[in-house]
């Protein structure tokens, strides 16, 4: 059926999330990935976080930690943005404030994502 007056077209884009089940699924997928990533992260911190600056840098610069650390931070940010947007949608009901907060969170997360990758690359390749 085409046109905009069928059942699917009427609900598409409605609801507080405006995006249906995709967000729900992505939240679960990032959660499942984070189970493994956080387990790795916790063990690595126990083993390495006590080191001095040079030792911490050597840990971050090793290929496995580079990959895992970047994955952990980016997946964590993705999952956090989805989660925080849900929290905002639950408690903030003024459309303008809600949109403003959501946009601010997404911009800030993008900034953190780029900063974390640059930081890790700088440690690994910056000399």
């Amino acid at each position: 059926m085409s046109g905009s007056n069928n059942a699917a077209a009427r609900v598409r884009g409605l609801g507080s999330a405006k995006a249906g089940t995709h967000v729900w699924w992505t939240q679960r997928l990032t959660a499942a990935a984070l189970v493994l990533l956080v387990a790795w992260f916790a063990v690595s911190l126990i083993l390495n976080a006590q080191g001095n600056h040079a030792q911490v840098r050597a840990w971050i610069a090793s290929p496995v930690s580079m990959v895992m650390l970047i994955l952990t931070v980016l997946t964590g940010l993705w999952h956090a943005v989805l989660g925080l947007v849900e929290v905002i949608e639950d408690y903030v009901h003024a459309e303008g404030t809600k949109l403003g907060l959501i946009v601010a969170i997404k911009f800030f997360a993008a900034l953190l994502a780029v900063a974390s990758v640059v930081a890790v690359f700088r440690i690994a390749f910056g000399g």
């Binding site: 911490v56 971050i60 650390l69 931070v73 956090a80 925080l84 640059v118 930081a119 440690i123």
Partner: peptide, 19 residues
């Protein structure tokens, strides 16, 4: 979840400091 989101900001700041 909210506390961890704040923690993630701190983690990235720490990484930047380490770099």
């Amino acid at each position: 979840g909210i506390a961890l989101s704040v923690g993630l900001v701190y983690l990235v700041a720490w990484l930047c400091a380490a770099s």
